[in-house]
């Protein structure tokens, strides 16, 4: 009991000291207004970061490369250390990995029974990217802009270019499924959904950006930076990550299944499910 009390007093003292220190140090003064901060969060026209000294890019692009590096590093570690020790009766990590692979593979198979090998891989990769990329903003990794200011790296998909890239790539994957299954007929089927890349891109962008803006707004005021970010930052971001991952992968799988369906076979009930996914 005495040990616990001692630890509690030390913890309270540390918190108090840090609070006093943060108040005494103060801030270096705002370099931008809230309007400018919001505008830059959307457009990234000011706070750009140099990409290996080649050119200035949006912070989202740097985030995207960082997320890819994190994912590939984690995958390499898992490949080297975990996968060779896989057992027929799985442990916790193995179960998690098998669930993740099985989830997207099952989604691909259920939505596109005829052609789903690449779709499963694509959904797995994109799902991991969206999920980890959305949670990435919680890390608060700092980067230095070309103007020398520090900036927190945002979620990759809060950059409109990343959202457009992912939306159009998903559309191209759907188109490739249609072409592979039905030839020119598949192209026709896919082109019929001409609004899909725009809707996919801007849905992602809007969803991620709204989270970013709320977080940006909260962090803009120091008084709101205590306790509240736990709710706003963590819980909202977790929800965002799950919802956006589900929506993007489900929509891609549904449209892929629809356009890759053989023409002579009866149509499935994809259309009935679409509005539900669209609303999410």
């Amino acid at each position: 009991m005495k040990q616990h009390k001692k630890a509690l007093w030390i913890w309270l003292l540390a918190v108090l000291l840090l609070l006093i220190a943060s108040l005494l140090v103060g801030t270096s003064g705002r370099t931008e207004s809230v309007q400018e901060a919001m505008r830059d969060a959307v457009l990234h026209s000011v706070n750009q970061i140099g990409l290996f000294g080649l050119r200035a890019v949006n912070p989202g692009t740097i985030s995207a490369f960082t997320v890819t590096a994190i994912l590939l590093l984690a995958a390499a570690c898992i490949r080297i250390f975990a996968i060779p020790r896989f057992q027929y009766v799985p442990g916790k990590l193995q179960l998690l990995l098998e669930e993740a692979v099985g989830l997207f593979d099952g989604m691909a198979k259920s939505n596109s029974p005829h052609r789903n090998r690449f779709l499963g891989l694509y959904l797995f990769s994109v799902g991991s990217y969206v999920f980890v990329g959305t949670l990435f903003e919680l890390l608060g990794i700092q980067a230095i802009t070309v103007h020398g200011h520090p900036v927190t790296l945002p979620a990759p998909l809060s950059d409109v270019n990343a959202a457009i890239a992912l939306g159009t790539l998903s559309y191209l994957v759907i188109l490739s499924g249609g072409v592979a299954s039905n030839g020119l007929g598949g192209v026709g089927k896919t082109l019929k959904e001409f609004s899909l890349p725009i809707s996919m891109s801007f849905r992602l962008f809007g969803a991620l950006l709204s989270g970013l803006l709320v977080t940006e707004l909260v962090y803009y005021f120091v008084a709101l930076s205590f306790v509240l970010p736990v709710v706003v930052g963590v819980m909202f971001t977790l929800l965002h990550a799950l919802i956006q991952t589900y929506v993007l992968t489900m929509l891609t799988a549904l449209y892929y299944g629809e356009v890759s369906e053989q023409s002579h076979e009866p149509r499935k009930k994809h259309k009935k499910e679409l509005p539900q996914a669209e609303n999410a």
């Binding site: 949006n58 995207a64 994912l71 898992i78 490949r79 098998e98 990769s125 994109v126």
Partner: peptide, 24 residues
């Protein structure tokens, strides 16, 4: 930058396929 993102996604898809998806 869109092309950079595409390249990034292509790297990610290929890497995840080789390192995680295929072995699992």
């Amino acid at each position: 930058q869109i092309l950079l993102h595409w390249m990034n996604l292509a790297i990610l898809i290929g890497g995840l396929y080789l390192l995680l998806y295929k072995p699992v």
